[in-house]
Write a protein that binds this DNA or RNA. Structure first.
Lengths: 206, 206
DNA sequence: CTTCTTGATGTCAGCTTCTGTCATGGCAGT
DNA sequence: ACTGCCATGACAGAAGCTGACATCAAGAAG
């Protein structure tokens, strides 16, 4: 018989799993860190050794995403223009995300982000950190400022919008395709394309 | 003699002033809400009646900024293309900000935002809310999605970058000019301009 | 003038998040 | 067997934030 290890393995993973379960069962705000830790067979104190705060338990994937994107920018053809390099990197990262992550998890997490501004704040700062990393990657390729920052920021914007349209979309289209579409729309907008005539939305009554 | 009013006027303003003073004197983290309230001649509980949380005391101006920008988009010439309308609105708002706000305050606040990720998070969600408002304003003018969102997001990106370059700049140039420059750079980048050859930054040693 | 209502503030108890500090006890290397 | 390591636990406490109720001057209503 295997000797009992002193501790169950993968404390971090157990905490993440327990957290998502409880957030889905009771909602984010009505789940305390103590409950998460207990379900994972640990204590509150240990939770805070793995995660800087309660929200952080939802963001274990963000380092991978950043690394994947930065790496792809580093490997882009030497004289590709910044927008193309960034667009291709985000598109590929989108495809990877779609492949690797459970769709149920991605949806549940998206609901949490949209429903709780506390979590949205964290999401936004992760995206800002991603933009900063992309900026550095572009600078390393010789792109000057402010072009590097602008390409990075617009890349993130395109990713956000593509992701949102993908996850809320009725037909299960490809995330990468949504991102590509957003890039193309951005180019058209930035080129000063005339506003297509469309029925204006009714103004809200103040 | 004037009868003493029961309460000193402008509790909110006193709280904001006390907060900025203490943040400059001791730093953000080492200032408690109780200290802020006491300096303003109030109690902690009253602070939380005026501000949803400790960070919010630094963001009284954000509603004005949003309103100013949305209004200007609403008043742009009827068939202006989205990017131009957005760019003009942000440029004008930048000029207004520069006119109306004390430079010392703007700088001190900028330092706080860059130094404390907690505050940066709040700043970013305010900018996201601004982008959402700009999107709605464009939609009301008949701009379709995703063009409206993209124009709004890039507008915010341009504002951020213009602001940053203005506030950290050596020569006290115009904020509006920085924003205008960022818009132009963005157009060039989005048009797929060739990377200008520039000395690449040294890579960080991992 | 008296009474009533209102609204900004105070008081207090309590929860949750997050941190510092020290204790515990298997496990690995010697 | 000894020893140091290190993931975890235990505990106390600060700070942020909330709900409930009390206070009390300033008008409004009568």
């Amino acid at each position: 018989m295997e000797a009992m290890a002193r501790w169950q393995p993968d404390a971090r993973g157990r905490l993440e799993k327990a957290a998502m379960e409880l957030f889905e069962e009771r909602g984010y705000e009505r789940t305390t860190v103590e409950e998460i830790a207990t379900r994972a067979g640990l204590t509150e104190r240990t939770f805070f050794r793995y995660f800087a705060d309660k929200r952080e338990v939802l963001f274990s994937g963000s380092k991978d995403l950043e690394k994947s994107i930065v790496d792809r920018i580093g490997r882009a053809p030497p004289r590709a223009n910044p927008i193309e390099a960034v667009a291709a990197a985000f598109e590929a990262a989108g495809a990877a995300l779609q492949d690797r992550r459970d769709l149920h998890f991605v949806r549940a997490r998206y609901v949490l982000v949209t429903k709780h501004s506390e979590i949205l704040e964290r999401e936004l700062i992760k995206l800002a950190s991603l933009a900063a990393a992309v900026t550095r990657a572009l600078r390393a390729r010789g792109v000057s400022e402010p072009a590097a920052s602008l390409a990075a920021e617009t890349g993130v914007a395109v990713f956000k919008i593509g992701f949102e349209r993908w996850i809320t979309g009725k037909k299960p289209q490809d995330l990468a395709a949504h991102i590509r579409a957003a890039v193309n729309a951005l180019k058209a907008v930035a080129a000063g394309e005339k506003t297509p005539r469309v029925t204006p939305k009714r103004k809200r009554t103040a």
